[in-house]
Simulated assay, not measured.
Amino acid sequence: MPPVDTQELTVNDISQPRKGHWQLQAIVGQLRSARDDWRRQNGRSCGQQGGRELPSREAIKSILEQLCGALFPMRLGPVDLREESEDFYVGHTLDAALNALLIQARLELRYAARNGNCDYAEVDTHAMHLTQAFAAALPELRRVLDTDVLAAYHGDPAARSVDEVLLCYPGVLAIIHHRLAHHLYRAGLPLLARISSELAHSATGIDIHPGAQIGQSFFIDHGTGVVIGETAIIGERVRIYQAVTLGAKRFPADESGTLHKGHPRHPIVEDDVVVYAGATILGRITIGKGSTIGGNVWLTRSVEAGSNVTQANAQHDGSAV
């Protein structure tokens, strides 16, 4: 067959390709074979019947949007909401969000129990209890988030109102997601929590692991490139700037090379600390209360309360590098 001159193809030729043009039957079969191979290699059942096995990223995104609206209805809720219908909107939205969250919690817990002899009825009951506890925690989460919003407003001279902060600041969006995700993480729903935090990461460039413990009145200014690890502990009234990393210094592994999971490996940042842009703080070290860590500092040792660490003094004493 002679080569086709694509310059002579008409719009009709392009928009309506010949039947069988994509060889879909063969490709679909090859994709099924690849899936079955992966499932066998990873101990999954092939040809499993039924619905979805894992939580849905899109469902969790919708749940988080609904929760944000319910927490801050007149600012993050629908554009046509009026104060006289605020409670109705919050109740209706929470009902939808919590029912959807229950479904996702069931999926995660069933997935975790798939290789055991666990009774799915018990799993579903546990999912209900976790979702009820999450719902009951929302008023206190709202109060804590108010301290974060105020910290952003008071900490940034460019902020003209708390409403601007809530509507516009990526650090505030990231901490809203984190506070919700952290509750899920502590409740035993780490996959839902991780998806929640990664949705905020994608939207803001701020990467906070849901396991990180963060005190009240927390403010991330600008935010892009911030990384906070799983076992980090942050006190109250802490302010950090863009491109700050609170990370691990090393990753211990067993004899087979498998990394140890869950051990404390990230910094402890005490109350009233400021960490300026580009600083990298690594390992299970403590930044004492009221300290200031300057821009682009590389810090791998603990510092006492009230310390002022800059590139110059870190390089001078050599112990911070």
Rank of each mutant, 00 (worst) to 15 (best):
E8C: 05
L9D: 01
N12M: 08
S15V: 15
H21Y: 15
A26H: 12
V28Q: 13
V28G: 04
S33N: 08
G43M: 06
L54M: 13
K61D: 15
I63T: 02
A70W: 04
L71A: 11
M74S: 06
R75D: 02
L76S: 06
R82P: 00
Y89T: 10
V90R: 14
L94C: 05
I103S: 13
A105V: 12
L107P: 03
Y111T: 07
R114I: 10
N117H: 13
Y120L: 14
D124N: 15
T125C: 10
A127L: 09
Q132S: 07
F134A: 01
A136I: 05
A136E: 15
Y153Q: 00
Y153V: 01
D163N: 14
E164W: 08
E164T: 11
V165P: 05
V172A: 07
A174D: 12
I176C: 09
H182Q: 01
Y185Q: 03
R186H: 12
E198F: 00
T204D: 11
I206Y: 00
I208W: 01
P210T: 06
G215I: 03
D221K: 04
H222R: 03
T224C: 01
T224N: 02
T224M: 10
V226M: 05
I233L: 11
A243Y: 09
T245E: 10
A248R: 03
K249T: 07
R250P: 01
P252T: 04
P252K: 08
S256K: 13
L259G: 01
H263D: 13
R265N: 06
I268G: 03
E270K: 13
D271N: 13
Y276F: 14
T280C: 09
R284I: 00
I287G: 02
I293Q: 09
G295S: 15
W298L: 11
V303T: 05
N308D: 08
Q311R: 13
A312D: 13
V321G: 00
V321W: 11
